[in-house]
Design a protein around this nucleic acid. Structure first.
Lengths: 205, 205
DNA sequence: CAGATTACAGACTAGGCAGTCTGTTTAAGT
DNA sequence: ACTTAAACAGACTGCCTAGTCTGTAATCTG
């Protein structure tokens, strides 16, 4: 096997396992040794490939978390359909995996934002970058929807994006508690209510 | 000074300082020594009054967090006015302190729920108790509002409560990032939109 | 095949952690 | 004033943690 390929493969293996454990147990609550034990690798291997635990996590953000966000919350919004329909389906799908997945610990972004807030500004910056990517995409999608006549002309797309992100972060936190599917259902009914209120008024045409 | 009074006073001092540090730095990221250093007390004092760090935190939940939740999110909803107006003002006030307070690290409940999820079931149980108190109160307030003709007859009060709690948890997480006051403003405009959509339709009377 | 570089292994260090234990001071009761 | 228990002080233990360092096997290169 090519050397640089092997290097990439090992680094990716480490990042995937690291991501799983960090997500499940939290960054500060997961030791480098925990990750290495699961990988059956040694300290030497880890610090050969990464400068520090922090550097390791930053790379996980950029490689794995960014991709995950894109797949679940950005890519589903592409296309020229009604953005409100797309957003509804996108949120529904994202929450559905949470309902059926025992290993779901809430919204990845939201969890880590909470964990690092006030503790590690560098990591917070990297996380905020991803949040911004989502926000920008949401706003763009909404604005396009407005141009295409799906949204009411008076809606503030940035405000809608903030509200949508807030509610999604929050419901994912609530869903880790009891009866996630009931909470999902309740949430979705109200989300539809809200989205309907910013829909283009067909009466006006 | 009476002995039991002194005991209470010391325990309360410890809990207040512990709460501040836990909220700012997280439970797992705050050591008992950190708290004792700020208090200028010793290990002996701490373990004389509390069984363990966990026991200490559970008491903080029951004494300080429960009270804080009541003051900021439950008590303001009392009365026979329009619950939608009360909720709007309640959220606005709760977020306003966050805007002006440098030491705001998001919603206390939401932060700790995230931190302990999957790590400490006992503490999660105690936190969920408080969340339930909030939920029950919200639902009751909304139902009363429906009876009094402020809400549309068809609204699902439990779903509204879930949606409100979600959005509040989430926006508090978002607000710890950049430009909290702008986010607050955007959030509030959309919250009003949403609440208007579940208002009683005066046309029907 | 020789030598150089890569990709690890694992012992080790220094510091932090929750919790224990023994001792000392303070204050209440009599 | 003497006793007794409460309210601490602080050294100590055992364990965990991030990161270092030296050694070694595997692999590529000439």
């Amino acid at each position: 096997m090519n050397k640089s390929l092997k290097r990439m493969a090992t680094m990716q293996r480490m990042q995937i396992t690291g991501f799983e454990l960090f997500y499940a147990k939290g960054y500060y609550n997961t030791s480098v040794d925990d990750i290495l034990k699961k990988l059956e690798l040694s300290k030497g291997a880890f610090y050969y490939h990464f400068d520090s635990k922090e550097d390791f996590f930053v790379q996980i953000i950029q490689n794995l978390m960014a991709r995950k966000l894109y797949n679940s919350l950005i890519e589903p919004l592409e296309g020229h359909d009604n953005p409100l329909t797309l957003i509804t389906k996108c949120f529904d799908d994202a929450m559905e995996t949470a309902v059926h997945n025992e290993m779901d610990f809430g919204c990845i972004l939201s969890n880590f934002l909470t964990e690092f807030n006030g503790k590690n500004d560098i990591i917070i910056q990297h996380l905020n970058e991803i949040v911004t990517v989502w926000e920008v995409n949401l706003v763009t999608t909404l604005q396009k929807g407005k141009l295409n006549g799906f949204l009411d002309r008076h809606v503030d797309c940035e405000a809608v994006a903030t509200f949508l992100m807030s509610s999604y972060f929050g419901v994912r936190t609530l869903m880790v508690g009891a009866s996630p599917s009931a909470k999902k259902y309740r949430f979705m009914t109200q989300l539809r209510h809200y989205l309907k209120s910013i829909e283009a008024k067909t009466v006006n045409t």
